[in-house]
């Protein structure tokens, strides 16, 4: 599937494997959470980067202790309505300090890009490559935000205080 990364369509080095498929040697792979939990030690010895895929019901706590060994976490959005991944992403970034790639997979629409970005995602698997054209515009669609997240944007509530202090 087309991947948006760094603000544009990007090649995808990663290979997603299921519960039982053999892992390709020397390629970065994404495994489901259950597999990671079952084979953690074995997988840790690989020559290439490891990623874990969380389904929408999976908890950030399940991999919190392993984040130092993971270069990528993928979080699934099975339907447009299922917003659990937003919380999971924030916890991984802001609570557990994950520094690797945080990828949104599943039903990802352009009108969610800004929310996902603010929650810490930096890669997006989309159904249609044309969504990439809208990515920059989506991120720029609001110059004002009211909440502080890990994305570094200063919310209006704080900007007002800075302005007052300057007066």
């Amino acid at each position: 599937m087309p991947l948006i990364k760094g603000g544009a369509l990007s090649d995808d080095d990663w290979v997603s494997v299921g519960d039982d498929e053999p892992l390709p040697a020397d390629r970065p792979v994404i495994v489901p959470l259950k597999r990671w939990q079952a084979e953690r030690d074995a997988l840790g010895g690989r020559n290439a980067a490891m990623g874990v895929r969380l389904e929408s019901a999976d908890k950030a706590e399940a991999i919190a202790a392993d984040l130092g060994r993971l270069a990528l976490v993928a979080i699934a959005f099975p339907t447009f309505r299922d917003g659990r991944g937003f919380s999971t992403a924030r916890l991984l970034r802001e609570r557990y300090g994950f520094k690797g790639e945080l990828r949104a997979v599943g039903n990802v629409f352009r009108d969610q890009f800004l929310f996902m970005h603010r929650c810490g995602f930096d890669a997006y698997e989309v159904a249609d490559a044309r969504e990439a054209e809208a990515f920059a515009a989506a991120l720029a669609s609001f110059s004002v935000v009211y909440q502080r997240t890990g994305d570094g944007r200063v919310p209006a509530t704080a900007l007002r205080q800075l302005r007052r202090a300057a007066e």
Binding site: D82, L114, F142, Y146, Q147, T149, A156
Partner: peptide, 13 residues
């Protein structure tokens, strides 16, 4: 009201 406006984490409850 302001805190909840387009809250990125809580728009798909």
């Amino acid at each position: 009201r302001q805190w909840s406006s387009l809250h990125p984490e809580f728009s798909f409850l």
